[in-house]
Design a protein around this nucleic acid. Structure first.
Length: 1097
RNA sequence: GCUGAAGUGGUGGAAUUGGUAGACACGCUGGACUUAAAAUCCAGUGGACAGUAAUGUCCGUACGGGUUCAAGUCCCGUCUUCAGUACCA
């Protein structure tokens, strides 16, 4: 038998302690007779060996599909936040199994992505290798928590056998178009049929497409090349020059949902607008269906709202303003605007168009050209972020041109303003300053007249944007009408004279699908004469080529441009060397049938948009999943994951599923029936405070002075005296200058090197900061120091200040004291830094709740919790923390409560040791009698009435809680049940056995162990969920709360079958009633049988 | 600014249809066992006041009103926090 190390009272432990003279630190393990370590490993092994949770595709049972959002396997491993949702879904999956469902509960990895590639760039390791290692670590961590995943269906998006089908779906999208009339996707061949028979005129008219028109004859006379170019305008994935979000630091384009506050979601780098030829997904045609589809989904209202906002439907009208220049009407030049307020059309006093609008060039008058050109260059220079930050500044320029108002025929000036976005609507607005604050501000700023068209509304201070309850005035035939009626009339009038019509606009843009990266799915595409060609699906997968370095090429091509073997031989349908590429475009060369392959790869959301269907039939080599499998599993019944995917993954996957449905590949058109967003578990970061300063480089040759770089210096000890430190607050506005020219020049040299962006930059940073920190010779000066510096660059340190730096939470004890030596060893650059100490000389950290992340050093590893308390405790504690959907900081305070609950549960099944016995037995004997097999003590005798009541109360509550996803309260319910049964000294199998089944979704390991001890050879997961029986809860008496004027005063036990009158009589004759009435006669007595009595006096 | 969610003891959080506010747990206080510590067990624990005590009185679910026999819960207004989103025409 294993020495019982975990029981401190055991002889083994005593001897050991004696040996070590009590010098060893306390093991971080709670002493217990319940040996979770052995039990958990044992059952995890059993489940894996017996494939206990393998789901069958052929089953008579009803199906239930529980899915977690699969993780991206990062190098940091799992932290305690990740399992939260997995635990919840696992409880639900296990519960459904107990209820007799055939449960599909799979797991996999979203394993293509940026971090693995960034790591590859830094270390030269192949992303496939690091990804594989990360997955192995994830798997190890997941296994320790005891999830009931069916691992035989594991998917990895970076696996060629998986991305083969991602590529296949891409081909299907390319081979499809969308009919706006039937609101459905069809094969492109059907569109070609239409073109051959009737051209595209009919389509244009019916679908509101704005494509150049052609007849059937014209189509048939087009060259093949021309035909293909036309078709690209219809395909659901298409190649086009689009304005994209380009991130120079990441070297790739980003989708709208990958940008947060104008910077990249990953890394926080600036993003600029740039025109590039890119693959796009025509998601915008699905906007209405994506919006309508939300109605029938069981998702949280807030998440649906987020998607609605992202789709951004607005109903209004398009209004056309024909341009007039030098009092002559320009034939065909019209500014199309979109408005949600057609009723305000008589308030239009000018038009504003976006600086990027292509009409700018055409309409600007000769006199205004210089001014306009200047303005356009200025706005183009600003990044997206600067523009966002600059919202308050009103800028614009007059084009010199005028347009004719479609109803009044008056001339209105056309302005350019950057408050109008090229990417929304038509990139032009009809400005109604009296009704829109932005138009109002613009008009005030440039002195444009403001016309009031609202009855009895004062607009001298601000625009009036309320539409409800406002009456239109001063507006010809719509004066006196409300918003709704006036709008209808205006639209009618506009339609009559062909100057506009009712229109619906969506914010949702087509999604850019190309990424200039290595670690993603390659496109199954080659280029012939510059036109994209799909590779036949039977030659998939197109595998990622090997490359030396994971960086863009010298000519700026994506990393795949470095591959030697990256051309497609159409003769043998294989990837061949680039050197063989056909030079047919150049005269004198023959077309040898070998063409260059696409250099971009697909974005991260490609693989995650359809993975839920792959799990249904994960090993299928002939289809992405068989029809039989999909007919059985249909779609995901319960999906659990974070709300951060609201506008990315959850929208894109709905789009792909609708498309696959249209084309008959799927029977459902929504992937996720019910969705729950688990709240994020936050970490408590620790901050250490120090003195320091920043040094800023200024280029003094530029005017205004241009700030070029700021670096942070870590220490201040060598330059500040004690007195100065005390007077620190007084130094706020003073500057530090470095007068040593030599030093400055050398530092600049280093910075030049650093700015090259090569791999050594980090090393240089350290070098500069460490080398010069201690030799800085600085003095304090009053402001005006710039005169003294004669270098090209001036070095000016900003004010001294307190700085805070993240400290790893593992260096901090429970009293928030920092182990400063450990910290300095960990971050040697802080060796000489001056840290702020407490009065008693200790280093204390301040705490702040933040997102748990490796870079914030506040990560808690679930492995540590498992080591200390076990997986069952971790599972129950994470549930006990609070409501699933709520964000909450991680704290281990309270985990002992859950742990001791499990120990009490264990003890319920074993001979209790009485206090008397405890006193007479030695510690070792107590432990032995409690822990060994023969103390397992379950009686076959019928249970007491009380115990049965406890059991059924618990069944009812736990079942309700699971179905409402209120896992925190069911943990409490278990605690109450165990407390009550312990008090009742219940040992009855009749009660304890069902209780065990009830508990098993939450604490599967201990449940399996006790189940096994009860004599079952099958896993507890095969047991049926206990049936709740009302009869055990039926009461004959009720303790009535008796209240006076709503205040509860005392309780009174009465039989439940009394009538209202009998209850009233009983209460009124009670001595306390007489006492509380103090002689008054009650006005009214409210009796709610079975609930409450209230006496109104 | 807009949209959504929330505000309850020292802490995490309960209260399902308006019906005994603070379940359960942590923490804290006291006690038992122990040479001691740990572990375990028992008792107490929203606040204020009165009383030797049993007990009693008042206050109390962000704030101000209202509806009701009865409000954490419903209605109106205000404030605060968190999340999402934003020159969206």
């Amino acid at each position: 038998m294993q020495p019982n190390y975990f029981d401190k009272n055991s002889d083994f432990k005593r001897n050991r302690l004696f040996e070590l003279m009590l010098k060893i630190p306390e093991p971080a393990i709670n002493m217990s007779n319940y040996h979770f370590n052995n039990i958990e490993a044992k059952w995890q092994k059993y489940w894996a060996e017996n494939q206990t949770f393998k789901a069958e595709n052929n089953s008579e049972k009803p199906k239930y599909y529980v899915l977690d959002m699969f993780p991206y396997p990062s190098g940091a491993g799992l932290h305690v936040g990740h399992p939260l949702g997995y635990i919840a879904s696992d409880i639900y999956a296990r519960y459904k199994r107990h209820q007799g469902f055939n449960v599909l509960h799979p797991q996999g990895y979203d394993s293509f992505g940026l971090p693995a590639e960034q790591y590859a760039i830094q270390t030269g390791q192949h992303p496939a290798k690091t990804t594989k290692e990360n997955i192995a670590r994830y798997r190890e961590q997941l296994d320790r928590i005891g999830f009931s995943f069916d691992w035989s269906r594991e998917v990895r998006t970076s696996d060629p056998s998986y991305y083969k089908w991602t590529q296949w779906i891409f081909i299907q999208l390319f081979e499809s178009w969308y009919c706006n009339v039937l609101e459905q996707s069809f094969p492109i061949s059907e569109l070609i049929d239409i073109f051959e028979e009737e051209g595209n005129m009919g389509l244009n008219a019916k679908c509101g497409n704005n494509q150049p028109e052609f007849s059937a004859e014209m189509w048939n006379s087009f060259s093949e090349e021309k035909k293909q170019k036309v078709l690209l305008n219809y395909r659901l994935t298409y190649l086009a020059e689009t304005e994209v979000n380009w991130c120079p630091q990441l070297g790739t384009v980003l989708a709208n949902d990958e940008i947060v506050n104008g910077v990249s979601e990953r890394g926080g780098f600036p993003v600029i607008k740039k025109k590039m030829i890119q693959w796009s997904m025509r998601i915008s045609v699905f906007a209405e269906r994506l919006l309508q589809g939300l109605e029938n989904l069981d998702w949280s209202e807030s998440l649906k709202e987020t998607q609605r906002n992202w789709i951004g439907k607005s109903v209004g009208a398009s209004v056309e303003f024909r341009v007039v220049n030098e009092k002559e009407e320009f034939q065909g030049i019209a500014i199309k605007t979109f408005t949600t307020r057609p009723d305000t059309i008589y308030g239009v006093t000018f038009l504003t168009i976006a600086p990027e609008n292509e009409l700018v060039d055409k309409i600007t008058t000769i006199e205004q050209r210089i001014e306009v050109a200047k303005y356009i260059t200025e706005t183009a220079k600003k990044s997206e972020r600067e523009r966002l930050a600059d919202v308050k500044n009103i800028t614009g320029v007059f084009t010199g041109a005028y347009a004719k108002h479609p109803l009044t025929k008056e001339l209105v000036p056309i302005w350019i303003g950057d408050y109008v976005l090229a990417s929304y609507g038509t990139g032009a607005v009809m400005a109604v300053p009296c009704g829109d604050q932005r138009d109002y501000d613009f008009a005030k700023h440039f002195d444009i007249p403001i016309k009031n068209i609202f009855e009895g509304v004062d607009i001298s201070e601000a625009a009036h944007s309320d539409k409800e309850g406002t009456i239109i005035a001063n507006s010809d035939f719509i004066s006196g009408y409300s918003y709704k009626d006036a709008s209808d009339k205006v639209i009618e009038a506009l339609e009559k004279n062909h100057r506009g019509k009712k229109e619906i606009n969506y914010r949702l843009r087509d999604a850019v699908f190309s990424r200039q990266r290595y670690w993603g799915e390659p496109f199954p595409v080659y280029y012939k004469n510059g036109l994209p060609q799909m590779i036949d699906a039977k030659y998939l997968p197109i595998r990622l080529p090997e490359i030396e370095k994971y960086l863009p090429t010298e000519t700026g091509e994506p990393p795949l441009g470095r591959a030697d073997n990256w051309a497609w031989d159409t003769n043998i349908n294989t990837i061949v060397s680039n050197k063989l590429v056909s030079k047919s475009e150049i005269e004198g060369y023959e077309d040898n049938g070998i063409y260059p392959l696409e250099l971009n790869t697909m974005p991260g959301w490609a693989g995650s948009s359809w993975y839920m269907f792959r799990y249904m039939d994960a090993l299928n080599n002939d289809e992405f999943a068989s029809k039989e499998a999909m007919d059985y599993w249909v779609n995901v019944d319960l999906y659990i994951g974070g709300s951060e995917h609201a506008t990315g993954h959850l929208l894109y996957s709905r789009f792909w599923v609708k498309f696959l449905h249209d084309r008959g590949f799927l029977s459902v058109d929504e992937p996720f029936k019910k969705l729950i967003n688990q709240g994020m578990i936050l970490g408590e970061s620790a901050f250490v405070h120090r003195l320091g300063f920043n040094i800023t480089f200024w280029d003094i040759n530029q005017n205004p002075k241009h700030k070029t770089k700021t670096i942070s210096m870590f220490g201040a000890s060598s330059i500040l005296t004690i007195e100065e430190k005390r007077g620190l607050s007084k130094l706020q506005d003073k500057y530090v200058i470095i007068e040593d020219k030599f030093f400055s020049a050398e530092l600049i040299e280093h910075f030049k090197k650093r700015n090259d962006g090569n791999d050594e930059s980090e090393k240089y940073r350290r070098e500069v900061e460490n080398k010069y920190m201690s030799i800085l010779k600085v003095e304090l000066e009053e402001q005006g120091v710039l005169d003294k510096v004669r270098l090209d660059f001036a070095l000016i340190g900003s004010k001294y200040n307190f700085y805070r730096t993240h400290a790893d939470v593992s260096f901090v004890n429970t009293s928030n004291e920092l182990d400063i030596e450990a910290f300095k060893n960990w971050r040697p650059e802080f060796k000489d830094a001056e840290f702020i100490t407490e009065e008693d000389g200790t280093f204390k950290v301040s705490r702040e709740v933040e997102k748990m992340s490796k870079s914030k050093y506040n990560v808690v590893n679930p492995d540590d919790i498992c080591n200390q308390y076990g997986a069952d405790t971790l599972r129950m504690y994470e549930m006990f923390l609070g409501p699933l959907e709520q964000a909450k900081p991680w704290s281990t305070a309270g985990i002992t409560g859950v742990h001791s609950f499990l120990k009490k549960m264990w003890r319920l099944f074993h001979t209790p040791v009485t206090d008397t016995e405890r006193r007479t037995l030695s510690g070792a004997e107590v432990s032995r009698s409690e822990s060994e097999e023969n103390t397992f003590n379950i009686s076959e005798n019928p249970a007491s009435k009380d115990s049965l009541k406890t059991l059924h109360k618990t069944i009812k509550k736990v079942q309700e809680d699971i179905e409402n996803f209120s896992f925190n309260t069911s943990v409490s319910t278990f605690m109450i049940a165990v407390n009550e049964l312990t008090a009742q000294k219940c040992t009855s199998k009749e009660v304890l056995e069902p209780l065990l089944v009830l508990l098993s979704p939450y604490a599967p390991h201990i449940a399996e162990e006790l189940w096994n001890k009860l004599g079952y050879s099958e896993s507890i997961s095969t047991a049926a969920f206990p049936k709740f029986e009302e009869k055990f809860l039926v009461e004959s008496m009720k303790k009535y709360p008796i209240s006076f004027n709503g205040k509860m005063r005392f309780t009174m036990e009465l039989p439940l079958d009394l009538s209202k009158d009998e209850i009233e009589a009983a209460v009124m004759s009670h001595e306390k009633t007489i006492h509380y009435l103090e002689g008054r006669t009650p006005k009214k007595v409210i009796v709610v049988p079975g609930k409450i009595v209230n006496i109104v006096g």
